[in-house]
């Protein structure tokens, strides 16, 4: 009756239950490190809105699936990457793209917020996102004397009607911080990362994100398609 418990609960707990951060030779820092407070608050927003229902957060190794070829990561994810995450929301669906490294692909908070406000805006021309918009994470405000410092900056043609601005609520801001904190690229002894350029994969890598330039995709990439 408890055989599967021994194998899937007790065994892993004995091996991994007391895993601790370790000194990383390459970076000279402890890895992993806990996320910043705002990012941890953002994880609660991620949980509350069930983002894990469509987005996974696990990268499979090269040669198994096309996760790395799609630019979803530079190496597979390992147990250490999730040490401080509770609840752990690795997800089992890819209705949307994997988010294990969304913070590398799109470090710009404004872009992430615009994507949450209306995913279609950040898509490359001719492409459509299947993600719902999250208008309830934002506030449409009448413009005061000046534009609010954290109002969304839209690309031309997508700005709200004149005299209004879109301001992210706290939930949206911390959620963007959480997404920015998602990156599992630190090279590990057992797992050197596959850096773009050294790998043939980068040439063919045209993730929906940046059809123009694959090699620099992590900097110019629009978020998750």
């Amino acid at each position: 009756m408890s055989l599967s418990w021994l194998g899937l609960v007790l065994g892993p707990q004995l091996q991994l239950g007391s895993q601790a951060p370790e000194m990383n030779d390459k970076t000279g820092q402890l890895y992993p490190q806990a996320r910043a407070g705002t990012a941890q608050q953002g994880r609660e927003v991620y949980r509350a809105n069930g983002c894990f229902s469509c987005h996974s957060q696990q990268v499979r190794p090269q040669g198994f699936g096309a996760d790395i070829e799609r630019g979803w990561g530079v190496r597979r994810t390992v147990a250490a990457d999730y040490l401080f995450d509770s609840p752990l929301m690795v997800g089992s669906q890819r209705i949307g793209p994997d988010l294990a490294n969304i913070g590398l692909r799109q470090p710009d908070a404004n872009q992430l917020l615009v994507h949450l406000y209306n995913p279609q805006i950040t898509m490359a021309t001719g492409q459509k996102s299947n993600m719902p918009s999250y208008p309830y994470l934002f506030e449409k405000r009448k413009l005061g004397r000046t534009i609010s410092p954290d109002a969304l900056k839209f690309p031309s043609g997508f700005a709200p009607e004149a005299g209004y601005e879109i301001v992210p609520r706290v939930e949206a801001r911390v959620l963007a911080e959480y997404l920015r904190s998602l990156h599992a690229e630190v090279p590990l002894i057992e797992l050197p990362s596959i850096t773009p350029g050294t790998n043939a994969v980068a040439e063919t890598n045209a993730p929906a994100a940046a059809p123009t330039n694959a090699a620099q995709s992590s900097a110019t990439n629009s978020p998750a398609k």
């Binding site: 599967s4 899937l8 609960v9 007391s18 509770s86 752990l88």
Partner: peptide, 23 residues
């Protein structure tokens, strides 16, 4: 009871949660 205890009330660490959830 076991899964609620290990995931919700006194969560285990990191990926062990993945194992408990699958179990």
């Amino acid at each position: 009871s076991a899964a609620n205890l290990l995931l919700v009330f006194s969560p285990v660490r990191g990926v062990v949660q993945l194992c408990v959830n699958a179990w």
